[in-house]
Nucleic acid binder design. Structure first.
Length: 758
DNA sequence: TGTTATTGTGTTTTT
DNA sequence: CACAATAACA
């Protein structure tokens, strides 16, 4: 992830940052507010360690997202400028680091080096089979629900027999326990691991290696490489520590068992509680590590004063926080805007329209970001941006890699490396249709179960499964196809291999023969997959199939074409964590959207939602616009929208108003020095004094006349006066009047029908 | 056995 | 409203 535009970051580290960089000799906890130079501290710390002579391979840096890992590596490289072999530093996400370790050392656990990482869809497919076999009510036990319990168990390091700790009540507990065990057995037999397993298995390895040798078994004795791993790292740095779950915390502790540990985090940005993350990890860190040194970073270098005021107004209403207050010396900056529009199309058009104009005036597209709470909101926005001729880059999104045709081809690729992966083999056996029907597959699966082997193993024995000659012939053809392709894996470069799979399996041909619109779309998607593969190969020369599969399962994707600098970025607020942009549009600021309908009843989740809003606001450097709509389509039904409580929490003097009220001066003031709240009782901020009443928002309402969304600040052309800025309006229809400010003639009130939108 | 129509069904967020 | 799972068809 590049650095977006300018940043008013001082050349020299401030005293707190320096302290965090320089501290040695005990565990270090850096409590770093948004935009306070957290990544800077980490990268400088790593660079300093290298300068002190620590070998790069003895340093480990862990992040949560691949974007963060990429950026961190890039910044370390830049800082070290060829002075050190930075390639040898281990930088990665929890999951990628664990996958790497398991490929190398996972054999004792039953994982071969080419084990398959199961994504959510793969796991669901397996669990569906498991529940069918258990013959339990599929109303009461959905694959998703059971997997949810299993995931929660894994996040806390619990096995099928330890579900009590989760507080699962009885009929559920025993069913989940059975399903859990059966699911793990299937995954292991298929040489597969789901996301949670990556951590679970790695911790198991490290636990075993840490035990005294006599109990650890033969193969772990002596020059055990895993044991060596425990001594490998001298320094471990963990970013976004507030989002670790208990098992990940154990993983960190073990990897750092002979290292100095530095964790960086912000309790106000903990937004992954639903995934098992537990802020307690950060709260209890000092208890687990004696002599922990704590550094707090509160000086914000990212955002302007009024943006920070808004952020503070939102987050201060949370009770359970350590209580930081960000401050800046950057000045107020532009007021934050709140705009209401009639519907989501208008909302999208407004955003597109404004960005279009800014770009026409010379702004760079990558300065802009559009955030939303859920992916479902992205579609309308994407359409509007494309209509406005803007390049779009969508992070995550209605995942490209989850589309049927993509999953099919990727399943072929998985099978080429790991034919025992039943879930993937079962998926492609008859895709494209080659006359291997469900009954055939069911019988083969039954035989595999009876023999305790994988599906692939029984394919040559199709006859013994009671199948007719025709079916056997087709199976044999399929086996031959896969085996031919397997021979090509080592022979072809990655992109050629993928192309060959699309071709030789007859997949492309079947789509071409179909010829309808949908199939054409699928063909395009396959083309895009090929493009992504080529891009990956050029970024990672010599990458193997294994590398590519890991990338697709762990990294997910970005959608959009063209160079990044030419595109506006769209993403969920969750994906935005850790990033920053000059100008941010935060859309869908309505109750039931953000905060999401599902959290309204639960105060704990509501606090997380509030932190999410805080994260969103603090991404903006210079300009922040919040939009909300009067009516939104949910479930295909028009639903009235009410302003988000987070909007109502904003201090009115930080907002742009229709009446262009004189702007007050106060920035967030430097807070009085406070004794560190660390490990004491939580500090509660004083009650907020200013907040918006719902009716105060009226001045912001935008309206639509003739299909054009109106909003304060938009530009309008008049044939005599030229271009003017809209400062307000009155009336409606033919009587709609604009209050406009023109550069030459100043303020004018003009009938709207004499003006046209620019 | 494979394709198509219909009826449910359900939606946060991610590695 | 979309999409998936099911039912009815060819």
């Amino acid at each position: 992830m590049p650095c977006y535009g300018w940043a008013p970051v001082p050349v020299v580290l401030n005293p707190e940052q320096s302290a965090a960089v320089a501290h040695r000799g005990s565990a270090l906890l850096v409590l770093a507010g948004a935009g306070t130079g957290k990544t800077r501290v980490i990268t400088h710390r790593v660079a300093a360690l290298l300068d002190e002579g620590i070998p790069p391979w003895r340093i480990l840096a862990v992040t949560f997202t691949n974007k963060a890992a990429e950026e961190m590596r890039a910044r370390i490289d830049r800082l070290c400028e060829g002075r050190h072999a930075t390639k040898e530093i281990w930088v990665g996400t929890f999951h990628s680091i664990c996958a790497r370790l398991l490929r190398r050392f996972g054999q004792p656990l039953g994982l071969s080096p080419h084990f398959t990482i199961y994504d959510t869809a793969d796991s669901t497919a397996v669990m569906t089979k498991v529940l069918e076999a258990l013959d339990v009510s599929d109303k009461l036990f959905t694959p998703r629900g059971v997997l949810g319990w299993i995931d929660r168990a894994k996040n806390r390091g619990l096995g099928p027999g330890e579900l009590d700790a989760l507080g699962v009540i009885e009929p559920v507990r025993s069913v989940v326990a059975k399903a859990f065990a059966a699911y793990q057995a299937r995954l292991l037999a298929a040489n597969g691991a789901d996301f949670g397993d990556l951590i679970v298995h790695t911790v198991a390895l490290l636990r075993a290696a840490a035990r005294p040798r006599e109990t650890a078994g033969q193969q772990l004795a002596g020059d055990d490489p895993v044991r060596a791993l425990l001594h490998r790292f001298q320094h471990v740095v963990v970013d976004e520590f507030q989002d670790t779950n208990p098992l990940q915390a154990e993983l960190v502790d073990r990897l750092a068992s002979h290292a100095e540990l530095c964790v960086v985090g912000d309790d106000d940005q903990a937004i992954y509680g639903w995934r098992g993350a537990d802020v307690d990890q950060i709260l209890r860190f000092a208890d687990r590590h004696r002599g922990t040194h704590v550094v707090r970073l509160e000086h914000n270098y990212r955002s302007t004063g009024l943006i920070l005021r808004c952020a503070d107004a939102v987050i201060r209403r949370n009770a359970g926080r350590l209580g930081k207050t960000l401050w800046t010396d950057a000045g107020d900056g532009d007021p934050v805007r709140v705009l209401e529009l009639p519907g989501e199309r208008e909302e999208a058009r407004l955003v597109a329209h404004e960005i279009r104009h800014a770009i026409d005036d010379g702004a760079s597209p990558d300065q802009f970001a559009i955030f939303y709470r859920t992916h479902a909101q992205s579609r309308v926005l994407e359409d509007a941006l494309r209509t406005a001729g803007l390049g779009v880059r969508i992070v995550g999104g209605v995942a490209f890699y989850e589309r049927a045709e993509i999953k099919d081809i990727l399943s072929y690729l998985v099978v080429l490396l790991n034919p025992d992966s039943d879930a993937h083999l079962g998926r492609i056996l008859n895709r494209p249709a080659r006359g291997i029907g469900n009954t055939t597959i069911d019988r083969l699966a039954a035989l595999a179960t009876a023999r305790g082997t994988s599906l692939w193993q029984v394919l040559p024995a199709a006859r013994e499964a009671g199948l007719g000659a025709a079916a056997c012939k087709k199976i044999a053809g399929f086996v031959a196809l896969i085996e031919q392709l397997r021979e090509r894996v080592a022979a072809l470069p990655l992109d050629a291999l993928v192309a060959e799979v699309v071709e030789r399996t007859g997949y492309r041909e079947s789509l071409v023969l179909d010829g309808d619109e949908e199939s054409m779309g699928r063909l395009e998607n396959l083309q895009e997959l090929l493009g992504n593969t080529e891009e990956f190969l050029s970024e990672h020369p010599g990458a193997t199939l294994s590398d590519w599969l890991e990338q697709t399962s762990l990294v997910g994707g970005e959608r959009g074409e063209g160079p990044r600098a030419q595109a506006v970025t769209m993403m969920t607020v969750h994906s935005a964590k850790g990033l920053e942009f000059d100008e941010v549009y935060l859309t869908g600021m309505e109750e039931r959207v953000f905060p999401h309908a599902r959290v309204l009843e639960d105060p704990v989740q509501m606090e997380e939602e509030r932190r999410l809003a805080y994260v969103a606001i603090t991404r903006a450097r210079r300009k922040l616009t919040l939009t909300m709509v009067a009516r939104r389509r949910i479930y295909g039904q028009l639903q009235p929208g009410t302003p988000s409580r987070f909007v109502l929490d904003l201090p009115r003097e930080a907002l742009a108003t229709a009446a262009a009220r004189p702007r007050p001066q106060p920035v967030v003031e430097r807070p009085a020095p406070r004794t560190p709240a660390w490990n004491e009782d939580v500090v509660y901020d004083a009650a907020p004094e200013i907040a918006l009443e719902p009716d105060e928002l009226e001045g912001f309402h935008a309206e639509v006349d003739g299909g054009v969304a109106l909003f304060v600040g938009m530009h309008v052309r008049h044939k005599d006066f030229g271009i003017g800025e809209l400062v307000g309006w009155s009336g409606a229809g033919r009587q709609l009047k604009f209050n406009l400010r023109f550069a030459r003639v100043g303020l004018k009130t003009i009938l709207a029908r004499f003006c046209e939108p620019v």
